[in-house]
């Protein structure tokens, strides 16, 4: 046997070892990262069951376990009201915003009409203006027609739906990827534009429809700035984000409500997470298909 035949094998072994070492490091990094990413959520879960002290303490595992915080959360605060508000906003957004977003993104992606570029550029420029300041005037107008404070929910829905047409980027990116020859084939067969939309493209766009519904539904759960401004301190008009932030907004509040806040966080996070996990496939498809091509 000559050396020539052994050499590649040795080299191969060396590479294998190198590969194993780098894999080991990758596993190590990944495990560390997973711990860092998950520990806060485990902590919040554990702290929500702590009975003995309601303020922040220097240990994680409760000395005394119980559901006291949850009971208190639902009986002594407006949490149920906040939860209902958010659910209502989320559900309406899921229906209405989805219709608006799909209509706009479909049109801009697949119909050629005069002014299309102009509309897209206008959206781009409008998006550069910090939308928050417009709340100063919107708030006054809404409060004149009585949609602020305790009645903030319809006001928030209205603002959210009205402005949602500008958030068309991701679903437009998705529509762009559907081959144009389909439209043309249908057109040759005598289909109207509505039929092309309804019978040809929509059945193919299921992932982006579900993605849009999912993000529209989840948006209000994290909506903070607008919700806080419109609710204007009235507990009945808050959503969960504003309500829970209000709970721990001052040192005095923290010492009273900290564990209750943890319980509230868990109550919000668990259903959303379950829903998300069920529809995760579509979310990933939407993000990877639409976000980068949009």
């Amino acid at each position: 046997m000559s050396n020539k035949e052994i050499m590649p094998k040795q080299k191969h072994m060396g590479m294998k070892r190198k590969n194993a070492i780098s894999n080991f490091f990758i596993y190590f990094i990944l495990i560390v990262m997973v711990v860092v990413w998950l520990v806060p959520f485990v902590c919040i879960l554990l702290e929500s069951f702590r009975v003995e002290k309601t303020w922040q303490v220097g240990y994680v595992i409760p000395h005394e376990w119980g559901f006291g915080n949850y009971v208190k959360l639902f009986t002594e605060t407006d949490f149920l009201k906040w939860y209902g508000n958010t659910l209502l906003i989320g559900a309406s957004a899921a229906v209405l915003q989805t219709i608006v977003v799909l209509a706009v993104s479909y049109t801009l992606s697949r119909i050629n009409f005069k002014g299309r570029k102009f509309l897209m550029n206008t959206c781009l420029v409008l998006g550069m203006f910090p939308g928050f300041v417009t709340l100063i005037v919107l708030y006054r107008v809404l409060s004149d027609i009585g949609l602020t404070g305790p009645n903030a929910v319809p006001g928030l829905i209205l603002i959210g739906v009205a402005g949602s047409g500008m958030g068309y980027y991701i679903s437009k990116g998705y529509f762009d990827t559907i081959p144009r020859s389909l439209d043309e084939a249908a057109k040759v067969d005598g289909a109207t534009k509505f039929q092309i939309f309804y019978k040809v493209i929509m059945p193919l766009a299921k992932p982006i429809v579900i993605y849009t519904i999912l993000t529209a539904f989840m948006g209000p759960w994290g909506d903070f700035m607008f919700a806080k401004y419109i609710a204007n301190g009235s507990s009945a008009g808050m959503n969960v984000a504003v309500g829970l932030q209000y709970m721990i907004s001052s040192p005095g509040n923290i010492s009273k409500n900290y564990t209750m806040f943890c319980a509230g966080g868990v109550c919000v996070a668990i259903p959303i997470t379950i829903l998300f996990m069920c529809l995760q496939k579509y979310y990933v498809e939407g993000v990877t298909g639409g976000a980068v091509k949009g």
Binding site: W37, L38, P40, F41, C43, I44, Q56, M218, W221, G222, F224, V240, A241, L244, Q245, I248, I254, Y258, F261, C262, G265, V268, A269, I272, T273, L275, F276, M277, Q280, Y283, V284
Partner: peptide, 18 residues
Amino acid sequence: VLTIAIPQFVSLLYVSKL
């Protein structure tokens, strides 16, 4: 991906108190 699902305000508020 699981951590994307948890509403940001929960994680942000909790971490800030952490």
